[in-house]
Amino acid sequence: MPCWFTLTCAVLSIFAFVCVLGSEVNVQRKNLLGLGSLQSVAVSGRLICLGRPAADVKVKLYESEVLLDSKLDEGRTDSNGVFRLSGSKREFTTIDPKLNVYHKCNYNGLCDKKFSIRILVDYVSSGSEAEKTFDIGTLNLANEYSGQTTDCIN
């Protein structure tokens, strides 16, 4: 191929990349300016370990993103293993919330075991307060959960 053709293709590729990158930055800037719709979600449940309340277990509520998830809320279970988290985020599309649970039930490793639970879209509300709460019920952390990993940085 002629040299000018290769150079033209390279310039067009760079131009297309800059345009895509610019539109992503513009979308983020619009969200900072308060555009998009404010959406909220809440999740609750009880965690046990081998039949006993799993107290002081770390739980985090996230909005799943393409590159880096956005934390909406975090907390720890109480002395009965109970928790409730809620949060809101402004997005153009419906938020995709998930709950991450970090624990050491029946496990002696250096890092925590971690698993995630997707929250159904039916539990996403418009506005700053969740209209209903996604209840995960009572979970025994001694069980193995799909997608469970270990996490040292949480």
Rank of each mutant, 00 (worst) to 15 (best):
D56T: 04
S13I: 14
I119L: 02
L110F: 15
N108C: 10
E24P: 01
N80I: 08
L7C: 03
G75V: 09
S40K: 02
V25Y: 06
F83D: 00
Q28D: 15
R84M: 14
G51R: 06
C19D: 14
L67A: 13
T77P: 07
L21R: 11
K98I: 00
S70D: 08
T133N: 12
K98H: 08
V43M: 11
S44G: 10
Q28A: 14
S37G: 02
L72H: 10
A54Y: 09
L141M: 11
V59F: 07
I117R: 00
T149W: 02
Q28E: 13
E63M: 06
C3F: 10
Y102L: 09
T149R: 09
S125N: 01
D122W: 03
T149M: 07
P53G: 13
L72V: 07
L33H: 10
R76I: 11
F92N: 08
G147Q: 02
S37N: 06
G127H: 03
I119C: 00
L7I: 05
F17E: 04
L72K: 05
K104I: 15
D122Y: 09
N26E: 14
T138E: 08
S116V: 04
L141C: 11
C9Y: 01
L47G: 09
Q28T: 12
D135M: 03
H103M: 06
K113L: 15
D135S: 13
H103W: 09
M1R: 02
T150P: 02
L7N: 08
L68T: 10
G22N: 14
E131P: 00
R118L: 13
S44H: 03
V66I: 04
S70V: 11
S86C: 05
S37K: 07
S128T: 14
V20P: 00
L47D: 01
W4F: 10
Y102K: 09
C9I: 04
K114L: 12
L85C: 09
D112M: 12
D78L: 14
Y62N: 02
K89P: 04
T149A: 08
S23E: 15
D73E: 06
G51E: 05
A16F: 09
D151F: 11
D96C: 03
S128F: 06
D112T: 13
I48P: 03
P2I: 01
T150V: 15
R46P: 01
L120E: 00
T6H: 02
G51S: 06
I48H: 05
L139Q: 10
V18M: 14
N108M: 12
L47C: 12
E24D: 12
E74G: 11
N100P: 01
E63D: 13
Y107N: 15
Y123V: 05
F17K: 10
L35Y: 15
L68D: 11
T133C: 11
V18C: 14
T94Y: 04
Q148A: 11
L35M: 15
L7G: 02
